[in-house]
């Protein structure tokens, strides 16, 4: 059992942050790694990335958007409640070294994943420019933390309610035009279309780019192959070979399709859950 120590709502309650007591994971986790959790006995196993870790306090912070039954159940848990199983850290850590200027681009809850990676690059002595975006100001998350983790933070909203009016890809292009060869690497994490278009932009400028892939997983140890993705024409497992891959080689269309595998079942489970909740209320 893993106890939730603190709960915070972000982005008008559509996103929830939980600090969870998990000292062994907190001690071992590196930027880019993730956990797999199961809320209760009948729950499914879902992968979630860690937005932060505090080895001294023994906690990890997970941030998730409420999209299905599992996250809806989790959103109802408060401080003092428990999550039945958490396994981690899983996946390969981000290869972080001093390279020069790094651009980190995040969209939606992808910003949570991006946060420790951004901080890691900065701590390694890189100049880090972070670009984060959301549909509007209310949905933007972790602005203050990202400002602290980077040297320069650029914010954009699709509707122009805050920061640059436009997509992260527009700001990314501007920066690449401005900085030229100075940019040694880009990291883009967010919804699949966002990562796909970021990769297209950086490819024009020949900037090596990593994307963190949010494939559906079961075990997270390479045992089942559920999370297989095509990278450079080869099948890779996101859980053990990734979750980060060369964004210029990733077949994002295939990833998008595979993420839709269980939409009818997800809807069925969610409808049942919400019906049960409304009955209880």
């Amino acid at each position: 059992m893993f106890e939730i120590i603190a709960r915070q709502e972000l982005a008008q309650g559509t996103v929830v942050a939980n600090d969870i007591m998990a000292p062994k994971i907190a001690a071992k986790a590196r930027p880019g790694q993730f956990i797999i959790l199961r809320v209760n006995e009948t729950g499914e196993r879902i992968p979630l990335t860690m937005a932060d870790t505090d080895p001294e306090r023994g906690t990890i912070t997970i941030i998730y958007q409420v999209v299905g039954k599992t996250t809806a159940m989790m959103a109802r848990l408060g401080a003092g409640d428990t999550i039945m199983d958490i396994a981690g850290p899983l996946g390969r850590p981000t290869p972080i070294e001093k390279k020069g200027t790094i651009i980190c681009v995040g969209g939606g809850t992808g910003v949570a994943v991006l946060h420790p990676i951004t901080r890691g690059f900065k701590q390694a002595g890189n100049k880090v420019i972070a670009i984060i975006g959301a549909r509007n100001q209310e949905l933007l998350i972790m602005e203050d933390k990202m400002a602290k983790a980077s040297d320069e933070l650029l914010v954009c909203t699709d509707d122009g309610s805050y920061g640059h009016h436009g997509f992260v890809t527009d700001v990314l292009r501007e920066q690449l035009q401005k900085l030229g060869d100075e940019v040694k690497e880009a990291v883009c994490i967010g919804p699949v279309p966002m990562m796909k278009f970021c990769a297209k932009v950086t490819e024009e400028f020949k900037v090596p780019t990593m994307a963190s892939l949010n494939a559906i997983m079961v075990d997270g140890t390479g045992m089942c192959g559920c999370c297989r993705v095509s990278v450079g024409g080869q099948t890779k497992f996101a859980c053990v070979d990734g979750p980060e891959f060369d964004a210029h080689q990733v077949d994002f269309e295939e990833l998008s399709r595979r993420l839709t595998a269980y939409i009818p079942q997800e809807k069925e489970a969610m409808d049942l859950f919400q019906h049960k909740c409304s009955c209880e209320a």
Binding site: G43, E44, T70, C224, G225, Q265, E266, A269
Partner: peptide, 23 residues
Amino acid sequence: SANEYLTRSNLMKAYLFPEYDTP
């Protein structure tokens, strides 16, 4: 893969969906 199919069904009890959440 058989590993995935059987893990979903046996360990995660997908055969009892939606009582169990794994599809």
